[in-house]
Write a protein that binds this DNA or RNA. Structure first.
Lengths: 94, 94
DNA sequence: ATAGTATGGTTTACGTTATAAACCAAATTA
DNA sequence: TAATTTGGTTTATAACGTAAACCATACTAT
């Protein structure tokens, strides 16, 4: 049985990646609402995904308010797809 | 997004459950080989699954050697299937 | 003006968890 | 009978997830 990428095998990080797989971009506030996570937890996990090169997080402004926009990278997309394939074995799917 | 049962969202415990979903029974040595885990780690995780009521672990003898035989319970089977359904959302499957 | 509150986060401290190392008893082999 | 193997359990540690505390700026009410 292959290893499950530990960076992705975490509920909140997986949720973030899952969302980013389906949208072009998502900001911090949206991710926080969708995942029902605390800001602190989300911040930490976004950092980890960013450091790994799985997502990008651009900090900008909309009017005078800060806004952090996240996007999945090609590397992140590949890692996610790979993770899904491995997980299918564990779940006895297809 | 629903919660991922934390008891199942662990590589080794998930591997054990996955195996036990497909066989009537499996002993400690077999699980250790299949999962490529250390005995200590496996022992701990089997305990947790047993305490949760997801598997049973019968300690017996074969000749003079001890042998721990594991089986999944109905509760464990249900929890696994439930976990798979929740996870499918995260993985964007079906 | 300024005190209070909301927004959009980051940093830090803590408890939990996974994991390996150390250990143990019994059986087998040299 | 000494050493090794087998089949595990217990314990110590490091990593991890999480929430609480915090910070800066913006907005609102007085």
């Amino acid at each position: 049985m292959k290893e499950l990428n530990p960076l992705l095998h975490s509920q909140l990080r997986l949720a973030v990646m899952s969302i980013l797989m389906n949208v072009e971009e998502a900001d911090f506030v949206y991710l926080k609402e969708k995942t029902e996570s605390t800001a602190g937890n989300l911040s930490v996990q976004i950092d980890k995904l960013t450091t790994a090169g799985y997502i990008t997080a651009e900090k900008g402004f909309v009017g005078k308010k800060t806004r952090t926009v996240c996007r999945i990278t090609e590397q992140g997309r590949a890692a996610f797809e790979q993770y899904v394939e491995v997980l299918k074995d564990y779940l006895n799917l297809q």
